[in-house]
Nucleic acid binder design. Structure first.
Lengths: 134, 134
DNA sequence: CAGTATCCCAACGGATACTG
DNA sequence: CAGTATCCGTTGGGATACTG
């Protein structure tokens, strides 16, 4: 349920630190691993992908999570959904321009994560080491 | 996760799509709004901040969440923690070089969110509109 | 095939109270 | 001041079963 007074006077741009700032909630929506993977998969395809294709490529995602993730992305205008009304049905997903524009910052974050994974591992190692002296 | 040893170093790099890929979990850790805000606050300060100062600047964060967020960041080597052993104690947090390097991709994501907030609002509006024709 | 529905457990996260 | 501990409601997310 979105704010009833949507588009209301909130829109306090430039102030991410206000609890009322909607950007804050948005950050938590788009930063998840499932969104990140979905955008990546669809961006690499540069075209449409079917539900089952996506599930196959996003190894480990459950049917439920792929479903709710895609629904949310459609809602937010990140992907478009096209149904071929045959039996059995074929449903195709494609990034919108908006969704495509999200790939760049997400890719940066993904790359950071991959690049600095070893350092973070090491930091964790060191941390648990000294906190468990004997 | 049956793995009892704190954060199993599977280290299957290069394949974000493998369920075993640790980068996946990392993405969900660093992409949260609290991490994002903490990094931003500390990066803007370009120095140290005390616990209470951070809580004041990160409006709306609870004591608990700031605590667990900072603990996680210290464990991951993103921030360093310095205690002045006086009474009452003073604790200072500062970004490590690693943490500072995270600011760039996170800032990109934040900026994307702010920039495209209106479009996402509109998409949601349109969505709920057509799904609730009246 | 592409979902939806249900159950159920685990993690998130606020509120409050207590402590070195 | 800077936490920790506890309680507890909300959400995330897997497993399974069912349907158009």
């Amino acid at each position: 349920m979105t704010d009833s007074s949507a588009r209301g006077p909130v829109r306090s741009r430039g102030d991410l630190f206000s609890p009322a700032c909607p950007t804050r909630k948005l950050l938590d929506r788009i930063g998840t691993k499932w969104i990140s993977m979905a955008v990546k998969v669809l961006a690499e395809e540069a075209g449409e992908l079917r539900f089952s294709q996506m599930q196959r490529q996003m190894a480990g995602i459950s049917q439920k999570m792929l479903s709710v993730t895609l629904q949310g992305m459609v809602r937010d205008g990140l992907v478009s959904r096209r149904v071929e009304p045959v039996v059995p049905p074929r449903v195709f997903y494609r990034l919108t321009p908006l969704g495509l524009s999200l790939e760049e910052p997400l890719a940066a974050l993904r790359e950071w994560a991959e690049a600095h994974m070893p350092e973070i591992d090491d930091a964790n190692q060191r941390y648990t080491q000294e906190e468990t002296p004997a």
